[in-house]
Computed example of a mutant assay.
Amino acid sequence: MRTVILLLLSNVFMTTAWYWHLKYKDTDLWKVIVISWLIAFFEYCIAVPANRIGSYEFNAFELKTIQEVVSLAVFVGFAVFYLKEELRWNYLVGFALIILAVFFIFKKW
Protein backbone atom coordinates (compact mmCIF):
# COMPACT_ATOMS: atom_id res chain seq x y z
CA MET A 1 0.00 0.00 0.00
CA ARG A 2 2.94 2.37 0.63
CA THR A 3 3.95 2.00 -2.99
CA VAL A 4 0.52 2.95 -4.29
CA ILE A 5 0.26 5.95 -1.96
CA LEU A 6 3.72 7.19 -2.97
CA LEU A 7 2.93 6.67 -6.66
CA LEU A 8 -0.33 8.56 -6.19
CA LEU A 9 1.50 11.47 -4.60
CA SER A 10 4.26 11.47 -7.22
CA ASN A 11 1.68 11.46 -10.02
CA VAL A 12 -0.05 14.49 -8.54
CA PHE A 13 3.24 16.35 -8.88
CA MET A 14 3.99 15.04 -12.37
CA THR A 15 0.51 15.69 -13.72
CA THR A 16 0.73 19.20 -12.32
CA ALA A 17 4.18 19.69 -13.87
CA TRP A 18 2.98 18.54 -17.28
CA TYR A 19 -0.43 20.19 -17.49
CA TRP A 20 -0.83 23.14 -15.05
CA HIS A 21 0.34 25.63 -17.66
CA LEU A 22 -2.45 24.82 -20.11
CA LYS A 23 -4.56 27.40 -18.29
CA TYR A 24 -1.79 30.00 -18.70
CA LYS A 25 -1.09 30.07 -22.41
CA ASP A 26 0.16 33.66 -22.23
CA THR A 27 3.07 32.69 -19.95
CA ASP A 28 6.42 32.49 -21.72
CA LEU A 29 7.37 28.94 -22.64
CA TRP A 30 10.77 29.14 -20.94
CA LYS A 31 9.07 30.10 -17.65
CA VAL A 32 6.66 27.21 -17.97
CA ILE A 33 9.57 24.82 -18.56
CA VAL A 34 11.51 26.04 -15.51
CA ILE A 35 8.49 25.92 -13.22
CA SER A 36 7.53 22.47 -14.52
CA TRP A 37 11.05 21.15 -13.90
CA LEU A 38 10.93 22.48 -10.34
CA ILE A 39 7.62 20.70 -9.75
CA ALA A 40 8.93 17.51 -11.40
CA PHE A 41 11.91 17.45 -9.04
CA PHE A 42 9.54 16.65 -6.17
CA GLU A 43 7.87 13.97 -8.28
CA TYR A 44 11.21 12.22 -8.73
CA CYS A 45 11.95 12.48 -5.01
CA ILE A 46 8.76 10.49 -4.39
CA ALA A 47 8.61 8.20 -7.45
CA VAL A 48 12.10 6.75 -7.06
CA PRO A 49 11.52 5.58 -3.46
CA ALA A 50 8.04 4.35 -4.46
CA ASN A 51 9.54 2.10 -7.11
CA ARG A 52 12.39 0.98 -4.88
CA ILE A 53 9.98 0.06 -2.06
CA GLY A 54 7.56 -1.51 -4.53
CA SER A 55 10.27 -3.67 -6.09
CA TYR A 56 10.27 -5.86 -2.99
CA GLU A 57 6.64 -6.79 -3.62
CA PHE A 58 6.10 -6.30 -7.37
CA ASN A 59 8.11 -6.97 -10.50
CA ALA A 60 8.90 -4.15 -12.95
CA PHE A 61 5.93 -4.93 -15.21
CA GLU A 62 3.54 -4.82 -12.27
CA LEU A 63 5.06 -1.59 -10.94
CA LYS A 64 4.68 0.08 -14.33
CA THR A 65 1.09 -1.10 -14.61
CA ILE A 66 0.26 0.31 -11.16
CA GLN A 67 1.94 3.58 -12.10
CA GLU A 68 -0.05 3.88 -15.33
CA VAL A 69 -3.40 3.23 -13.64
CA VAL A 70 -2.58 5.72 -10.87
CA SER A 71 -1.42 8.21 -13.48
CA LEU A 72 -4.69 7.94 -15.40
CA ALA A 73 -6.77 8.27 -12.24
CA VAL A 74 -4.86 11.39 -11.17
CA PHE A 75 -5.08 12.82 -14.68
CA VAL A 76 -8.85 12.34 -14.86
CA GLY A 77 -9.30 14.25 -11.62
CA PHE A 78 -6.90 16.97 -12.76
CA ALA A 79 -8.50 17.34 -16.19
CA VAL A 80 -12.05 17.46 -14.84
CA PHE A 81 -11.54 19.63 -11.76
CA TYR A 82 -8.59 21.87 -12.68
CA LEU A 83 -8.73 22.11 -16.48
CA LYS A 84 -12.55 21.86 -16.55
CA GLU A 85 -12.45 19.26 -19.33
CA GLU A 86 -15.46 17.08 -20.05
CA LEU A 87 -15.20 13.38 -19.19
CA ARG A 88 -16.75 11.58 -22.15
CA TRP A 89 -18.02 8.02 -22.41
CA ASN A 90 -15.34 6.98 -24.91
CA TYR A 91 -12.60 8.01 -22.46
CA LEU A 92 -14.21 5.80 -19.83
CA VAL A 93 -14.36 2.87 -22.26
CA GLY A 94 -10.69 3.35 -23.07
CA PHE A 95 -9.80 3.44 -19.38
CA ALA A 96 -11.89 0.31 -18.80
CA LEU A 97 -9.81 -1.47 -21.44
CA ILE A 98 -6.67 -0.39 -19.61
CA ILE A 99 -8.14 -1.87 -16.41
CA LEU A 100 -8.66 -5.08 -18.37
CA ALA A 101 -4.94 -4.98 -19.15
CA VAL A 102 -4.29 -4.76 -15.41
CA PHE A 103 -6.18 -8.02 -14.98
CA PHE A 104 -3.91 -9.75 -17.51
CA ILE A 105 -0.74 -8.32 -15.97
CA PHE A 106 -1.58 -9.38 -12.41
CA LYS A 107 -3.33 -12.70 -13.14
CA LYS A 108 -1.16 -15.62 -12.10
CA TRP A 109 -1.38 -17.98 -15.07
Rank of each mutant, 00 (worst) to 15 (best):
Y44E: 06
S55H: 11
I105P: 00
I53G: 06
S10V: 03
F58G: 00
V34H: 04
H21W: 10
N59H: 10
Y82W: 13
W89Y: 14
L8V: 12
A60W: 06
E85G: 03
T27A: 11
E57D: 11
V93N: 05
V80H: 09
S71E: 03
F41Q: 02
E62Y: 02
W30F: 14
A60K: 08
N51A: 05
E57P: 01
R52S: 08
L6T: 02
K31D: 15
F104K: 02
E68P: 00
A79Y: 10
Q67C: 06
I39K: 00
K31W: 09
F58W: 07
F95C: 03
V12Y: 00
L97M: 14
A50Y: 00
V69N: 02
L87Q: 09
A17D: 11
F41C: 11
T65C: 13
V80T: 14
I5L: 15
L92Y: 09
T15D: 06
T3R: 02
E62K: 08
A96P: 02
Y82S: 03
V12I: 15
Y24V: 09
K25N: 12
L9V: 14
F58M: 03
E86K: 13
I98G: 04
G54D: 00
E85P: 02
A17W: 03
S71D: 12
D26S: 13
E68Q: 15
L7G: 00
L97D: 04
Y19P: 01
F61M: 09
W18C: 06
Y19A: 11
L7M: 15
F13K: 06
L92T: 12
A40Y: 09
S10I: 01
L7Y: 06
E62D: 05
Y91P: 07
L8E: 02
F75N: 04
L83W: 12
N59R: 04
V70Y: 01
V93T: 14
V69K: 01
G94R: 07
I53P: 04
R88H: 13
F75R: 00
V34R: 07
L83V: 09
L72W: 08
E68G: 02
L87N: 08
T15E: 03
F58E: 01
Y19C: 03
Y56A: 13
L9M: 13
E68W: 05
L97Q: 05
G77H: 08
I53H: 03
F104V: 07
E85T: 07
V4F: 14
I46K: 02
E85R: 12
R52E: 13
V12R: 00
E57A: 11
L22H: 12
A60Y: 07
S36R: 01
V70W: 00
Y24K: 04
K23R: 13
Y56C: 10
V4K: 00
M14Y: 06
